[in-house]
C-alpha cells in the first residue's frame, strides 16, 4: 500500500476504534468521566482496568461506529475538556502508581469557537508538559489516524507504537495540499511527501514499534496485549527518575542533529 492508500485504510469505516481495543485488551474496565473543570468530552474515553494482572489507566480517543455514535463522539475530535479529562486520569495514575496506556485515533483536535474559547492550545500544551514529567510508564498506540497536536497530546510516551496501517502527521494531507498547491486533489502527493506511514516513522525513530494488522483483529489484540505486558514488566526495573529522563531523551533526540 502507498501512503494515500494507508491514509484511506486508517480512516476506513468499520476499522476497529479505541472502544474495540479496550474491550479486547483490558479486563474489569471501569469508565471514569469528566474533566472536573467544564464537562465530559465523549470523544475521549478514560478509565481503569487490568492488563493481564497489572492495573492500568486507559485513555482512548473514540471516533465511534455508525452515524449516530460518530456524531455523539464528535468524530473523534476532542475539545479542550477531552485533553483535560485525559490529564486528570494521568494524574490519578501517577498518584496510584499505575501505568498509562493511550489509544490514539483522531483526525485532529476540534477547531471551533468553543474549543478556542476554552483554550485548545493551552490544553494540548499542558498535556505535553505534564506527560514529559509523568512519573509512571506511558505507552501510546496509534490505532488509526494520528492528527497533529491533537494526537501528540496523548502520545508523549516512553514507547510509541503504531498499527501497520495507521498514519501520523503534522497536518492532514488535504490541508497540506490546499495550502501548498491550492489544490486539495493533490492529497496523494502530500500524503507521500509528508511521510505519514508507520514504516516511514519507524525509520525516523519517531515511533518504536509497528503492530502487524494482517493477522486479523483478534490476533492483533492478542499480540498487542503480550507486548504491552512485556513492556510494562520491563519498565519496572527503572526508577521514576530514569523513566522520566529516558522519555525526555527520546524526544530530545528527534530533529537534533545540528552541530
Amino acid at each position: 500500500m502507498n501512503a494515500y492508500e494507508k491514509l484511506l485504510a486508517a480512516r476506513a469505516d468499520g476499522r476497529p476504534t479505541a472502544k474495540n481495543y479496550i474491550e479486547r485488551l483490558f479486563q474489569n474496565f471501569i469508565e471514569l468521566h469528566g474533566d472536573r473543570r467544564y464537562g465530559d468530552d465523549s470523544a475521549v474515553i478514560t478509565g481503569i482496568g487490568t492488563l493481564g494482572r497489572i492495573p492500568v489507566t486507559v485513555i482512548g480517543i473514540e471516533k465511534g461506529h455508525g452515524t449516530k455514535e460518530k456524531v455523539a463522539r464528535n468524530f473523534g475530535s476532542a475539545h479542550p475538556e477531552g485533553y483535560r479529562k485525559a490529564l486528570r486520569q494521568m494524574k490519578l495514575a501517577e498518584k496510584f502508581r499505575r501505568p498509562v496506556i493511550c489509544l490514539v485515533d483522531t483526525s485532529g483536535a476540534y477547531c471551533g469557537i468553543g474549543a478556542e474559547e476554552r483554550g485548545q492550545g493551552q490544553a494540548i500544551a499542558e498535556n505535553l508538559m505534564e506527560l514529559m514529567g509523568l512519573r509512571v510508564p506511558v505507552v501510546s498506540i496509534l490505532i488509526g489516524e494520528g492528527g497533529s497536536g491533537g494526537a501528540l497530546a496523548l502520545a508523549v510516551a516512553d514507547e510509541v507504537w503504531m498499527l501497520e496501517n495507521a498514519v501520523y502527521s503534522v497536518i492532514s494531507p488535504e490541508g497540506c495540499a490546499s495550502i501548498l498547491w491550492k489544490n486539495p486533489k493533490r492529497v496523494g502527493d502530500a500524503a507521500e511527501y509528508l511521510k505519514i506511514t508507520a514504516q516511514d516513522l519507524l525509520s525516523m525513530n519517531v515511533i518504536d514499534r509497528i503492530i502487524p494488522e494482517g493477522i486479523g483483529f483478534t490476533k492483533t489484540c492478542a499480540f498487542l496485549k503480550i507486548q504491552l505486558i512485556r513492556t510494562l514488566k520491563r519498565s519496572r526495573a527503572l526508577t521514576e527518575e530514569e523513566l522520566v529522563s529516558q522519555r525526555y531523551e527520546k524526544f530530545r533526540r528527534i530533529g537534533s542533529d545540528f552541530q
Binding site: 501528540l152 503534522v170 519517531v206
Partner: peptide, 14 residues
C-alpha cells in the same frame, strides 16, 4: 518537515 516538526512541540515542552 512533516512529523519531525510536530515532535518539536514535545521536545520544547520537555
Amino acid at each position: 518537515e512533516g512529523i519531525l516538526s510536530l515532535m518539536q512541540m514535545a521536545k520544547t515542552s520537555g
